[in-house]
Amino acid sequence: MLGHYPTKRSVLVPTLLYAQDEVGYLSDEVITEIAGRLDLTQLDVRNVISYYSMLTTKPRGKFNVQVCTNIACLLRGGEELLEHCAKKLGIGHKGTTPDGLFSLEEVECIGACSWAPAVQVNYAFHENLTPEKMDGVLDEYRKRATQ
């Protein structure tokens, strides 16, 4: 992908995201490696990581449940959905279940306003949800993990 851009560092953000998808989070080793490859300081890389909300330097669950509570979802039960997930998973915002399967995150608008309330699990969208439908979604993922 380096060839796509006139400067090396332009690949930084997508590279970080792909590395995170591989490793689960941006560990010190990953940061060192990427900084080295792109001729950046680790400070530079960390400064960029901490700017973007999808990037994290802390491990999280296999499935990151991101519940939108922004206005469109708020009006259609986003907060109730978040509360429901929290109760169901037994964790709060940015928490991870002890089995490492799920993390929960309250997120800002994910571009599903017309299909609110919506949730993203990792990159997959789940829309027009109700607490009941949400249970089904979570079950589906739990099942997937055991297969």
């Binding site: 300081t41 680790q42 400070l43 530079d44 960390r46 400064n47 901490s50 700017y51």
Partner: peptide, 20 residues
């Protein structure tokens, strides 16, 4: 020297040193 940077964004932005 480039030993200082800015971490996070918004109101939690903070000046940070290069070795964490």
């Amino acid at each position: 020297v480039w030993a200082l940077g800015v971490d996070n964004r918004g109101v939690v932005s903070t000046i940070v040193p290069n070795e964490k």
